[in-house]
Simulated scan of single mutants.
Amino acid sequence: MKKSEIYFNENLDSLLESYMYQNDTLFATSLDDLLSSILPQDKSISSLDNITNRLKSIKSSYQKTPYSPSSATQSSRSKKLKPTPAREAWITQKKIRGNSSVPKKTYLEETNLQLPINIVQKTQELEHQFRHRKEIHLHGLKVVNRLLLVGDPGGGKTTLAFKIAEEMELPITTYNISSIITSSLGGTGKQIHELFSSITSGVLFLDEFDAISASRSQDNDLGEMRRVVNVLLQELDNLDEEVFLIAATNVPKKIDSAILRRFPSIIELPKPTVSEREYFIHNFLKLHQTTEEHRNIVITSKLTDGFSYAELTSLLTGFIIDTISKKQCKTLIDFYFSELQLRQELNDKLFAKWVKEKSITITALSEILSIPRTTLSDRIRKVKS
């Protein structure tokens, strides 16, 4: 069986089971994985009939007990499903809801995150300590179970959190902290307490951590943020030793100093280097069964200086979809230039920057843009002067 078909069947089963369990978050994730596994489209992969048969097979395993979504009730008269009061309250109040799952190898392979050796060694050290926490505890020592990840948006913080959970073979529960903030006095602190009380094991990942840990020296209405930070400090001090907490932020300067001291380990994720971008581009295209000349990959990796992994993923996804849908022999560089043109960012100043940094030669740039070399050289010279 082809590797692509194995991925398809795994994602399909996950999608259908999430439907039966009424797990909205897992359903959305599984659907995204399923669609990704069939790009480019492969006619040998399961058809719609196969999907129907799989759904019938999964349904049959649930026939022993009556099925109805946990988030809905059935009217005795109309037999129609409607949201339970609890679900309606959740929708109205926008209460926090976590997503607990065991990271898949396929997900981590697809993200293709490349890390500097010092970060790899640090995470391995933390993972090793936590796996042996019981033996270490017998010697009267406490294991570090709090980690703060710092980096720009799209820099791999979430991916690294999932990687750590996968290495420790633990389920990971994720929360976007910005959704925990309420307008009611004391409401945010209560939400924080409920969140920490609900997690007794595994990995807890808190994204946008600075949203509730801002410095108490800042001006805040009625001192609410001071109360929130004090509650958070208590929860961090009382964190269950079976929980490995990972918090993420892209603005560490906003975090209160007392909270920062509760994180013995802080890892800053830098943006990928040119070699890391080249490796990422090569493997991403290979994973999605798209070929490209090595020369074009090398040039693109140089021209995308400052890109995060998320930005690279967006660029490559657009290129693959464009190639499939239009069936054109357009290179990755051509696609990148067309994107810059659409955003009105392709100009002589950028060309001069690339040439100065030796990301690309004037000759190569002339060939790509179909502009005479002498004309392009004059335009760049004017920018420099």
Rank of each mutant, 00 (worst) to 15 (best):
K142L: 10
G151P: 04
K95S: 11
I267V: 03
L12R: 12
V243M: 03
L315Y: 04
P69W: 07
G151T: 08
M168V: 05
L376Q: 04
D152R: 07
Q234L: 14
I368R: 07
L138K: 12
T173P: 04
N250S: 02
W354F: 11
E278C: 02
D207P: 04
R146N: 13
H139R: 10
Q114D: 04
D256G: 01
E88F: 00
D237P: 07
T173I: 00
I180P: 06
V150E: 14
L269T: 03
R97E: 15
V231W: 01
K302D: 05
Y279M: 11
T375S: 15
I368D: 04
H282F: 07
N9E: 13
V355H: 03
Q328I: 15
D348H: 05
P252M: 12
D305T: 14
N118V: 00
N176W: 00
D348L: 11
F284N: 00
S61D: 04
N296T: 10
E109K: 11
K382P: 06
H193S: 15
P85L: 13
F351L: 11
F307P: 05
L113C: 08
T106Q: 12
A352Y: 08
I320L: 09
Q328S: 12
F244C: 04
S100K: 03
D334A: 10
A72M: 04
I255K: 05
N99P: 01
T291D: 13
F8L: 12
N112Y: 03
L287F: 11
Y279R: 10
V144G: 03
E5N: 05
E208L: 04
S201L: 01
L34W: 03
Q124F: 06
I297D: 03
T361N: 09
S183E: 15
F280M: 04
I172G: 09
Q344K: 15
I6F: 10
F351S: 11
L287Y: 12
R54E: 12
K95R: 13
S338W: 02
K358E: 15
Q328R: 14
A89R: 01
T65E: 13
R97F: 06
E125D: 09
I6E: 15
L148Y: 12
E357D: 15
E357R: 15
F307D: 04
P66D: 14
R77D: 11
I164C: 08
L108R: 07
S366F: 07
T313C: 03
Q129E: 05
P252V: 11
F337L: 14
L55F: 10
Y336H: 10
T73L: 14
Q218V: 08
E10M: 01
R343Q: 15
G155W: 01
T375Q: 14
G156M: 05
L340A: 05
N118Q: 04
S37W: 05
L141F: 09
L332E: 07
L149C: 06
Y67A: 02
E241V: 00
L138I: 13
Q124V: 00
S60I: 00
K302R: 11
L260W: 06
T331A: 00
A165L: 00
S179P: 01
D256Y: 00
G155Y: 03
Q63Y: 11
S60Q: 09
F280C: 01
K353P: 06
S18R: 03
Q218N: 07
F244L: 06
S183H: 13
T188G: 10
E241A: 10
E109W: 00
E194S: 10
L141C: 07
E293Q: 15
S70C: 13
V251Y: 12
S366V: 06
E169W: 00
E167P: 01
